[in-house]
Amino acid sequence: MPWDLDNERPIYLQLMERIQQDIVSGVYKPGDKIPSVRDLALDAAVNPNTMQKALSELERSGLVYSQRTSGRFITEDAGMLKELKRKLASEHIQTFFQKMRQLGFSDNETLNIIQEVIKGENV
């Protein structure tokens, strides 16, 4: 099943996001070995060089590390994983607020709506 990629943004960025997502959601656990570039590229149906670039960038950020002979692994640094989770959360929230602003709600109004919705669900 090819990965769901959009048409506007660079492919390697989207591959990075997808792998980060998989790390946060537990598809990959800390210390797990990740599949080879070739297998990942095949799974995503993308060019292997593009996948290579995405993994190199993740490696540069420290989220994955490579061991010369045995492949690439997910970091076991709990602080870094927590940091990633926070970063992704704040990105989602910013996108959400942006959309609410487009609907004409101020950020405070949006906060009120959120609370109403949460209360509504609790009733």
Binding site: N7, E8, R9, P10, I11, Y12, N47, T50, K53
Partner: peptide, 15 residues
């Protein structure tokens, strides 16, 4: 490269 095009023009090669 495909990603250069997407970065520079903000659109797919197809577009």
């Amino acid at each position: 490269t495909v990603d250069e095009i997407r970065t520079r023009y903000g659109k797919s090669v197809d577009a």
